[in-house]
Amino acid sequence: MRLLRKTDILLIAILAVIPVCMLAFNMLSAMNHTETKLVIVKDGEIYGTYRLTEDRIIEIGATNTCEIRDGEVKMTHADCPDQICVHSVPINRYGGTIVCLPNRIILSIEGAEDTKDTDTPDAVAR
């Protein structure tokens, strides 16, 4: 029996090209965003947006706590059993996300150009 057929290599190559293209597209769009902010989404609704420049600790409901320090965001506490979000790598640039699946909380860093342009009070941490 042959270990590897030619069609296998072809299939693996095709399956590799698709996500690599998606990643390249994401990287390109990330380069257009230099100003960033932290957006916390809980149960599908925006819980709050925060500047990355000031250090602070944010309690998200009763279940999770996250911390902004030196422009990096990490989840410091979660009451779920798997603790995957707490062990996630801290995020600091556009597109970075930490997800707590059990508590349905998403921390993500998004572009902040909109708030900068319109200069709304929304840019101030709530």
């Binding site: 590897l4 693996i12 996500p19 989404v41 599908g44 597109g95 699946l101 349905r104 993500s108």
Partner: peptide, 27 residues
């Protein structure tokens, strides 16, 4: 399950991870 899940970032990374794991398991 999670509304607003960042699919565009997770999907490609997890696809590559699954592809590597699946290839190794297959070999």
């Amino acid at each position: 399950i999670v509304k607003g899940f960042p699919v565009v970032w997770y999907l490609p990374v997890l696809m590559i991870a699954g592809l590597i794991a699946g290839t190794l398991i297959g070999l």
